[in-house]
Amino acid sequence: MQNMIELQAISHHFDTASERIELFHGLSCTIRAGETLAIVGPSGAGKSSLLSIAAGLEVPSGGTVRFIIDGAEVDALTMRANSGFIFQQFHLMPELDAIGNLALPLRLKGNRDAFDIAARWLDKVGLRDRARHRPHQLSGGEQQRIAVARAFVTAPRFIFADEPTGNLDIHTSDSVAGLMFDCARETGCGLVIVTHSEALAARADTSLLLAAGKLELAE
C-alpha cells in the first residue's frame, strides 16, 4: 500500500509587527513511508516550519500538500491520526511514570492490551527496570528513549522528529539515533528528522539542506 506526502511548490512566510519574513519559496519534495529523510540547515531557515507543513500541522502560504495513506488522498486530520512525533524537549507527561507514558497513546486509541505492549517496548528500549519511574527521575537520554518508543508504539505511517538529539550528549545522541532509525526500518514507517547534527543526518536515506529559502540535497 502506498503512503506518502507530496509537497509541491510550497512557499511560506510569517509576519512580524514591522516586516514579513519569507522562509522559502517554491519547494517541492516527496516523502515516502519506508524511507528516512533528514532536513538540515542553519537556524531560522524554516526547518521546523517545513516539518510542520509536512506533518499537516500548518498550512503553507503557497503551493499544495497532498497526503496519501493506503493509496488514497486524505486530509491533514487523518494524516495526523497516522503520525507520531518526537521532540527536542521530550515532552513526557510529568505526572505519569515511564510505562504510563508509553501506554498512553494506546489507551487513547482504546487498546485493551496497552500496558502489555508498553512493557514490551520498554524492554526493547532497555528501560524495563525504569517502568515505575517518573520523567524527573530519568536522565535526558532515558526520557528521549521513552519518547521514541511512545512515538512508535501505535505503529504510525510517519514519524516527525524535531531536533530529537538536540538536548543530548554525543554518546547518548548516538544511542537514541540508533534506536530511532532501527525502529523506523523495523516498522516500515517514514521518518522525517529536522536536525543540526551532521552525524544524525548521515544516518538518513536522504539528507536535504534548507538554506536561503532553497531545498537541495546535502553533500
Binding site: 486530520l77 495526523r80 491520526a81 497516522n82 503520525s83 507520531g84 512525533f85 521532540f87 515532552h91 507527561m93 498512553l104 497513546p105 487513547l108 486509541k109 511512545r150 512515538a151 501505535t154 504510525p156
Partner: peptide, 13 residues
C-alpha cells in the same frame, strides 16, 4: 493545553 498537545502528537483529535 500541554496534555492536549501531547495527545495530538499521538494522533488524538
Amino acid at each position: 493545553r500541554y496534555r492536549l498537545a501531547i495527545y495530538a502528537s499521538f494522533g488524538t483529535r
